[in-house]
Design a protein around this nucleic acid. Structure first.
Lengths: 335, 335
DNA sequence: CGGCTTATGCAAAACGATGTGAGAGGACTC
DNA sequence: GAGTCCTCTCACATCGTTTTGCATAAGCCG
């Protein structure tokens, strides 16, 4: 055991009495190999426990077979699900999936992206809310495939996967209008984020389709967090008359809204109703359970993976694609 | 722009009018380089935007500079925090961190580990509950560094980081005993998992230290999930007299316990008190907020990273280490 | 049976970095 | 002024694959 020699393709070739080229070809299938030798080679590979070295392969092919998922918030349970979706389709293809958190400042995101480009990842799924054009540009300029979660389609900046935020939010508001609510407050996430903008659009659209005017005083924004939701809610609850329902930009904000409502001695949904967005696990843990919109995280992850795979393996097809996944309204007790 | 030639170390050397060796040395610092040339090289690197190719480096050095975190449950918010802790110390060192989910069956874990060994990761943090000796063995046999989350210390199987589960659970039970509770049911996670065993030990220890006998009928086990908790709770609530408090193996189980209690028209904590474990975000979202034990996920992640780093960079120090992090009891309204 | 196409296998040149053994020049000692 | 050490730099072999251009064997036709 003194010679800890790692078994390489040459060892396989020697043991199978063929050339390394042949071994490589049975592995890659780039040139035909007779059934007989193919079987022999595969058996030897099995016996020796040969595993091709990804570094050597990467050096030669110029592909690292690694992709990254960049997220902006560890505490948001949406992301792990998305990561699972990615893994489901990418791992069988031999890809290594790196999950990176770019919490907080833009500098964090800068350094994460810099790190990923240093590591020569083949592709990036950018699910970070605080991403900017500069970041998209850095990634595509490095020749790295890019898939964005939500955002505006731009031919320079890679494919996009998104849930139908506008439609989903419109469904929420339409549902409320049908139930008779009229004074509908919106506690939205920052509108310099794509989901923020799209959900706001959905809110407006539903009101418009009901022939109602939008009261700008009923719209506040803040970070997509529990405290962000609480702060925004307090602002709206100070109005007179106060809103009958608080439509929130995501579930975390909705939980914050419920904090704020309770803090004032009011009850949900009798005094003020609340809706969330995303259908994270916590949405069904709180009482009353939250009416929300199910964001198909797993499917989104899968879709991102497939787009990436297409980009990486297939022809360098021009043009960017957009995949829009439907959302589903989930009515629970909070409205 | 037709020649998309990627800038390599040779280009840098040429532009700086030195040899590639010199460039390599200013980067690695393995041999002294004069201040003047060092500065010149660094400037050229900056100008050209040179990034050393990790594949080439990995091929030469035999290190991939990639580590993996293997987890067994996407929905458990403990893991993302841990991942953030890993990233915090490993990313600045240039490591790529891959998060892998081995949900469900042992085969899943097998295939995840196989995948990681194929990818030649330098180290693995195994935080998967359903890991077995075989898996530890596969990893260490491949010469890959291993850090386990919890588990029994074994000189063959790498370092261990764990929270003081036994102590934490003992604190919970002691707290309950001090409050006067006597009939204390335990809804534990499967005891073929290390946390399950350790927490059970804490439960026994606290009772023993109070001079009380352990009533085995008051102990049930099941998976560390919400439904697992609900099922176990129903079993205990069927007892006559029923337990005054349900001590749960983790927060998710505690939420399940609360489901079960409410389903029977009982209230928490007046009829039956509940405690959780881990202090996940949901623990403070539910009403009443859960008395639980804070599991220092971030610190655990950091500790794992440091152990890994030690193993990888330093001397191949023999002997395995164990890092035990203290836990903190958090008393809220559910008791 | 000779010339042709197909099927199969081989040797050798990349890929881009690291690190060793050796050489060049400068400073210091005697 | 010659010898000795340092300090710094260099050329080149090496890591384990993929892949290209050829060589050979095997099948087919006239």
């Amino acid at each position: 055991m003194s010679k800890e020699h790692r078994v390489g393709i040459a060892d396989v070739a020697a043991a199978a009495a063929v050339s390394v080229t042949t071994v490589s070809h049975v592995l890659s299938g780039r040139r035909p190999v007779s059934e007989r030798t193919k079987a022999k080679v595969l058996r030897v590979i099995e016996e020796l426990g040969y595993r091709p070295d990804p570094s050597a392969r990467g050096l030669r092919t110029g592909r690292s077979h690694a992709v990254a998922l960049v997220v902006s918030d560890v505490t948001n349970p949406f992301y792990p699900l998305m990561a699972a979706g990615l893994q489901e389709v990418l791992q069988p293809e031999g890809f290594l999936i790196s999950v990176c958190v770019a919490q907080g400042t833009i500098q964090d995101l800068d350094s994460v992206i810099d790190h990923l480009l240093n590591r020569r990842v083949d592709g990036v799924v950018l699910a970070s809310l605080n991403a900017q054009d500069r970041h998209f540009n850095d990634i595509t300029a490095a020749g790295t495939a890019l898939v964005r979660l939500s955002g505006e389609l731009d031919p320079r900046f890679g494919d996009i996967v998104r849930a139908d935020d506008t439609g989903g939010m419109a469904d929420v508001v339409a549902h409320l209008l049908e139930r008779g609510y009229r004074r509908i407050g919106l506690v939205n996430g920052d509108s310099d984020s794509a989901p923020g903008r799209l959900r706001l659009a959905g809110y407006r659209r539903a009101l418009r389709e009901f022939g109602l005017d939008v009261d700008e005083d009923l719209i506040v924004t803040g970070p997509f967090t529990r405290t962000g939701g609480a702060n925004g809610s307090h602002a709206l609850l100070n109005l007179d008359p106060r809103p009958e329902v608080l439509v929130c930009g995501n579930d975390l904000m909705a939980v914050g809204a419920m904090d704020a409502i309770r803090e004032r001695g009011l009850t949900v949904p009798d005094d003020v109703a609340v809706t969330g967005y995303d259908d994270i696990e916590a949405a069904s843990l709180v009482t009353p359970r939250l009416t929300t919109v199910h964001n198909p995280a797993l499917e989104i992850g899968r879709a991102c993976a497939r787009l990436l795979l297409d980009r990486l393996s297939g022809t360098p097809s021009e043009g960017v694609r957009e995949v829009v996944l439907p959302q589903k309204l989930i009515v629970r007790e909070s409205t």
